[in-house]
């Protein structure tokens, strides 16, 4: 086992699959010579050459569209969109094409593209380097949406994504690239080096798409979350002193509803948390599913904590970010409500 941060784990995933399958290629802005603005593709150009690691023009629609074409012709492209905030020029290619080619051609054509893209805030990036647009993609039939919260899952899920014949949007919460984050920006940064999930096998393994993980077992409350907030939620539950079961959804679509349902039936209380704006957010889908399946077990209404329904402001990052305080307040509300 090696100790890796999330960037190294993601790089290792691409390396392992590229080594195994000559059809896997990587393309994106600054991914070649430079190795990516977050260094996720560092070294791949030297190892696999410029026909498999391709510096793309600054055209997200072109990157996604060309990746689809390569996939139609037998390759397994891994496209990087430099920031999730810049995926929109490629949106039409994702929604109208990537997601639907298999369906409209009755399975005769399909393209196994994986789109990797860093998401989320907490890095003083302002509104165009902080967004969490996952719900826009989970709403689309025909693509899968994944968001790991640690290096081990990042590598295993990315390998599974690249090998999947379905197109996948792979969100990388950039705030936790270098270490877990409990939501307190004043604390010194923690690295993955001492975290059990920073232990990552050097070779091939997968984490299955469509499986949630119980990160912390508990009896009093279920917190359903993903990405950076997995770590924040665990810290918030601790601060409030509630025995919470924290579930990392990991795979937003397809959703492992069973794991969530079982937990909520056990605890009778549920808080859903994500960084993205709350209105119309992915949490609404989770909430609807859980209240239908667990209605007679619930001792309190399911609540959601999310980003405020505004763009992500530069200066008020920590008032915007659903941090420990906001989650703690949410936990209290769910706990207080009388049965």
């Amino acid at each position: 086992m090696a100790q890796m941060n999330m960037i190294e784990a993601i790089r290792s995933a691409m390396d392992v699959v590229m080594d195994k399958d000559p059809n896997v290629i990587v393309l994106g802005q600054d991914v070649g010579y430079f190795g990516g603005v977050f260094r996720c593709t560092d070294g791949l150009l030297r190892k696999y050459g410029d026909h498999r690691v391709i510096d793309a023009p600054i055209a997200e629609g072109g990157i996604v569209g060309a990746a689809i074409g390569m996939g139609l012709n037998g390759l397994r492209p891994v496209a990087e969109i430099q920031f999730a905030d810049y995926i929109y020029p490629g949106f039409d290619q994702v929604v109208s094409e990537l997601a639907r080619i298999r369906y409209r051609s009755c399975g005769e054509f399909w393209s196994p593209v994986t789109i990797r893209t860093p998401c989320g805030g907490g890095i003083r990036g302002g509104q165009t380097h902080s967004q969490s647009p996952e719900a826009i993609f989970t709403h689309v039939s025909g693509i899968k949406t994944v968001m790991p919260s640690n290096p081990y899952d990042a590598k295993g899920l990315l390998i599974a994504s690249i090998e999947s014949d379905d197109p996948i949007i792979f969100f990388e919460p950039k705030r936790i690239y270098n270490g877990p984050f409990d939501g307190d920006p004043e604390k010194p940064a923690v690295s993955w080096a001492s975290h059990p999930k920073g232990e990552v096998p050097e070779g091939y393994y997968t984490v299955p798409i469509g499986k949630a993980e119980i990160v912390r077992p508990g009896d009093e409350l279920t917190i359903v979350t993903y990405g950076t907030l997995v770590h924040v939620a665990a810290a918030a539950a601790e601060a409030v002193g509630v025995d919470a079961e924290v579930i990392d959804v990991r795979s937003l679509s397809p959703l492992d509803a069973d794991t969530l349902i079982e937990s909520v039936k056990k605890t009778g209380r549920c808080l859903i948390a994500h960084e993205a704006t709350r209105f119309g957010g992915y949490g609404a889908e989770l909430s609807a599913t859980l209240q239908r399946e667990c209605f007679y077990y619930l001792e309190a209404p399911i609540r959601r904590v999310g980003g405020w329904d505004t763009p992500y402001p530069h200066a008020f990052e920590w008032q915007y970010f659903p941090g420990k305080k906001r989650l703690a307040a949410g936990i209290r509300k769910v706990m207080e409500t009388a049965a």
Binding site: V240, D309, Q319, K324, R326, L327, A328, A329, R332
Partner: peptide, 16 residues
Amino acid sequence: SQRRRMLDLEKNGGGI
């Protein structure tokens, strides 16, 4: 209502 909630949280710190 989100604005009010945000200001409350700034004041009472979510009770932690």
